[in-house]
Design a protein around this nucleic acid. Structure first.
Lengths: 133, 133
DNA sequence: CCGATTATTGCAACCAGTTGCAGTAGCGCC
DNA sequence: GGCGCTACTGCAACTGGTTGCAATAATCGG
């Protein structure tokens, strides 16, 4: 239970990918990555920090955010901003996707693939833009 | 020059529209509205505050934000969040529009009308959603 | 295994924005 | 013109997130 489990798939390679880039594998990064590995879908910055603190009480916000920056560069997460402007992270390597927010109930849906396609095509047709959701 | 000029079109009526709703016309709101009236397109929250302070050094942030909330309810402004998650206000009564951000240069374009149309239609066709940009 | 290099951490100060509260002051009514 | 109701202001504390800097500690080469 308390023994260190092996990280699930996309995450096992992170350590080596960091080192290949001359970056370092630290206990703090390990904590963040373990939390992310146990997370699916979306998290806000502060949720993430809370969970990290649960795993290691000495966790410090700025370190978490900086780690997330690095992980984003590796393509392991993607960040965006919710309706309220708060930081939100998509734990990937997920498919690219967009969101739809319901102005009545505040809920959120992911944009269905075929709709996303249609949108991308719409922009391409209209202005020649290439869209990266 | 320093005499109080009459506010330009969409703004003249604000005072009365406020009163109709039981809201009040205060010097602070006047300042914000004058600044907005002199603004076209987009502003961030802090830009707005800076400009208000230039007009009246006693301006206080929370008052500005609260005034913006009220004005949003009147439909005079719309707020959203830039790529960096910072508050951004569209000074209206403008047409509805969306934005496209260039991931290479960081620039922003407004979404052309016909493209916006296409997007709205795409969602309607895909899921029956009604889109409010 | 040790020492040098330098990425990373922890901290503290700061920016943008929000919120609760007590005092102030618009506005409608007489 | 004065009164009362209550919306609004100013403040201070707080949330979420970012940044500069000195100290720390991964990692690499020998």
């Amino acid at each position: 239970m308390s023994a260190s489990r092996v990280l699930p798939e996309p995450w096992v390679s992170v350590r080596d990918r960091l080192r290949q880039r001359g970056l370092r594998w630290t206990p703090q990064r390990r904590t963040v990555i373990e939390v992310l590995a146990a997370t699916r879908g979306h998290v806000t910055g502060s949720e993430l920090i809370e969970r990290c603190r649960a795993a290691d009480a000495t966790t410090i916000p700025s370190t978490v955010y900086r780690t997330l920056d690095v992980l984003e560069e590796l393509g392991m997460v993607r960040h965006g901003h919710g309706v309220d402007g708060r930081e939100e992270f998509h734990v990937g390597p997920d498919v690219e996707h967009g969101h739809l927010y319901c102005s009545d109930c505040g809920g959120r849906w992911e944009i269905a693939d075929h709709a996303a396609d249609a949108v991308v095509r719409a922009f391409a047709a209209a202005d020649g833009f290439e869209v990266d959701l």
